[in-house]
């Protein structure tokens, strides 16, 4: 009892000690200023790194954009082996990716005159792995989803997000296992769409995909990863499994008016379709 009282009093004393910070007004300007300084510092750091590499005489082999996806760069994966194509180790650039750890380009394109890029990344600050972030704010609100938590046996996790406003477009993106080479997106009343399943240095256990379908009324029925032979690919083997469900049909934000066009198929449906 004495110890309990002691620690209770200690807690009160610690709180009292910590509360002695004078009010310095609205903190937002200072925090956003810090954000800007971090961006500048990271840009300068990247420039200095490139300069140092150039000065050292090393040959920089540029990533060829039209190769995305398809060409394996000669760099080691976590295990030391480069996975089969599609493979991308190109770092996404631009303000939207400043401050994000190693965003590797998964897909990119233009819709309604606006360029968009989807990139894989990890969130080391909170230990989330296998995330996919897109650059585009206006149309899709820059979704940012992490795929490190899967139900056992699930072959894909994906999201579909309709563009804001009058733009006739739907962003479909997600992750599949490492054996996949392509992803078949089945759309109600339309022909299937097949997109590359891109490996990146982000994760040896996942491949990522993203595409924009030029239709606002898309209803994605299911997403099937396909292996090199065009057969349904195995689920990712090495991720922590969750007991129930996933996050299909949900993205990381809930702006008013945002609409999710699809939900994950039920297990029974998926079993029937895959």
């Amino acid at each position: 009892m004495a110890d309990l009282l002691d620690t209770e009093r200690l807690g009160a004393q610690l709180r009292d000690l910590a509360s002695g910070v004078p009010d310095s007004g609205d903190p937002v300007a200072a925090v956003l200023g810090r954000v800007r300084r971090r961006r500048i510092r990271q840009r300068l750091g990247a420039s200095a790194l490139i300069g140092a590499i150039a000065a050292s005489g090393l040959l920089l082999v540029p990533y060829v954009s039209e190769n995305l996806p398809g060409h394996a760069a000669d760099i080691g994966f976590a295990s030391g082996a480069t996975p089969p194509p599609p493979w991308s180790d190109r770092i996404a650039t631009g303000d939207d990716f400043v401050g994000i750890d190693s965003p590797y380009v998964v897909a990119e394109g233009t819709v309604a005159g606006l360029g968009w890029t989807a990139a894989s990344t990890d969130m080391d600050i909170v230990e989330l792995r296998g995330c996919l972030v897109t650059s585009e704010w206006k149309l899709f609100g820059r979704p940012f989803v992490c795929y490190d938590n899967w139900a056992a046996g699930r072959a894909s996790k994906w999201n579909a997000e309709r563009a804001n406003g009058d733009t006739e477009a739907t962003l479909v993106f997600g992750a599949v296992g490492p054996e996949a080479r392509t992803v078949r997106i089945a759309i109600r009343d339309q022909a299937d769409t097949v997109v590359p399943a891109v490996a990146t240095p982000t994760s040896p256990d996942l491949r990522f995909f993203a595409t924009v379908l030029l239709d606002a009324d898309v209803h994605v029925e299911n997403v099937t990863p396909l292996d090199a032979n065009g057969e349904p690919a195995a689920p990712p083997p090495g991720l922590p499994w969750e007991q129930q469900g996933g996050e299909c049909g949900k993205t990381a934000h809930d702006d008013p008016g945002e609409q999710y066009l699809s939900d994950c198929p039920t297990r029974a449906t998926r079993a029937a379709t895959q």
Binding site: V31, G99, P143, F144, A252, H253
Partner: peptide, 14 residues
Amino acid sequence: FAKLWPHWPRLRDD
């Protein structure tokens, strides 16, 4: 706070 900024879309609902 500045470290959270680039991850805000992912974190704000979580």
